[in-house]
């Protein structure tokens, strides 16, 4: 590693341009966080349909509306992050299909469009022109929307992987993290939205999804934390920002505790005590902590000088 030659060369940059500040900041964090909740809720609604469809009553419309709202938060922050936001339409008229940004924009638009149709059908049941059986239509469409939710939640990992300057972000780990972020935040949001409409058994099921998602995501982060530095010196230099007295070390560990460790412990406690308050607390912490975790991982590779 060239870093080890520094003691011998004592090489110091004495004149260079200023390093650009963070380009993808908290707007992009909001984008990823809101998309995780939006797609995660669709995953959980589909799981509920397959597990116990009778509990879907009274949950179809509010859950889909919540997902729709979070998907629109995601779209708004994506749009606001553009330096030329009024040219957004270029993505649809001059698409470049090697770009994960293009593919994602098209899929997310289709996804949100389908969600809108499903909500409209459920709200205007009597006057619906599409179908005489709105609930059956909703449940059938949910299958296709769930399928679409997989690439919609994954495509941001593709963008990060295409940002080849940022060695830390690799497609295999980031795609796993994106799916786990969706199942973590989706199950958490479902626990909070379901409330008394969900049976104890179903709540316990979503609690397990939450706890296992937290566990697996935590394992991946710890694997990167411990072993990441061994694969490339750039990764080692980036991870230095979250290790020891690194400038993002505190924020990194707050995120890990709030998003993963505490929810895992609280879910375990819930399974022993059966207290709904404990499960709700785990859900709130997971959703809040996910933002912090995402933000740290987004920012740290951008601190490294590229030239």
């Amino acid at each position: 590693m060239v870093h080890e030659t520094l003691a011998a060369t004592n090489a110091v940059v004495t004149l260079d341009v200023a390093i650009p500040d963070i380009f993808w900041g908290w707007y992009v964090t909001m984008n990823m966080w809101a998309k995780s909740i939006g797609t995660g809720l669709v995953f959980m609604l589909f799981l509920l349909l397959k597990k116990n469809s009778s509990e879907m009553n009274g949950l179809r419309t509010p859950v889909m509306i919540t997902s729709f709202i979070f998907m629109n938060i995601f779209l708004i922050f994506t749009w606001l992050d553009l330096h030329q936001m009024w040219r957004m339409w270029h993505i649809f008229f001059y698409p470049h299909w090697t770009s994960a940004i293009t593919v994602g924009a098209w899929m997310a638009t289709l996804f949100v469009g389908l969600e809108f149709v499903m909500i409209a059908v459920m709200i205007r049941k009597e006057k619906c022109l599409l179908t005489k059986q709105p609930t059956a239509f909703f449940d059938k469409t949910l299958f296709w929307v769930t399928l679409l939710a997989i690439p919609v939640t994954l495509y941001t990992a593709g963008i990060m992987a295409e940002a080849t300057a940022r060695e830390l972000w690799q497609m295999p780990t980031e795609s796993a993290q994106m799916i786990l972020a969706a199942t973590l935040s989706g199950s958490a949001a479902m626990i909070l939205l379901g409330g008394s409409k969900l049976s104890d058994e179903t709540k316990s099921f979503f609690g397990s999804v939450l706890g296992l998602s937290a566990l697996m995501a935590f394992i991946i982060y710890m694997s990167e934390y411990i072993f990441g530095a061994m694969k490339a010196e750039e990764v080692a230099a980036i991870l230095h920002y979250v290790k020891g007295d690194g400038e993002y070390a505190t924020m990194f560990w707050i995120g890990q505790w709030v998003a993963y460790i505490l929810p895992m412990l609280l879910v375990a406690l819930y399974r022993v005590s059966g207290s709904n308050s404990i499960l709700s607390l785990a859900a709130i912490l997971a959703i809040a902590g996910l933002w912090v975790v995402k933000h740290v991982w987004l920012v740290i590779p951008q601190l490294l000088p590229l030239s």
Partner: peptide, 13 residues
């Protein structure tokens, strides 16, 4: 459109 994807992707800054 100023998405800064290229800024993030270029390994040379």
């Amino acid at each position: 459109i100023g998405c800064a994807g290229c800024v993030m992707a270029c390994p040379y800054g």
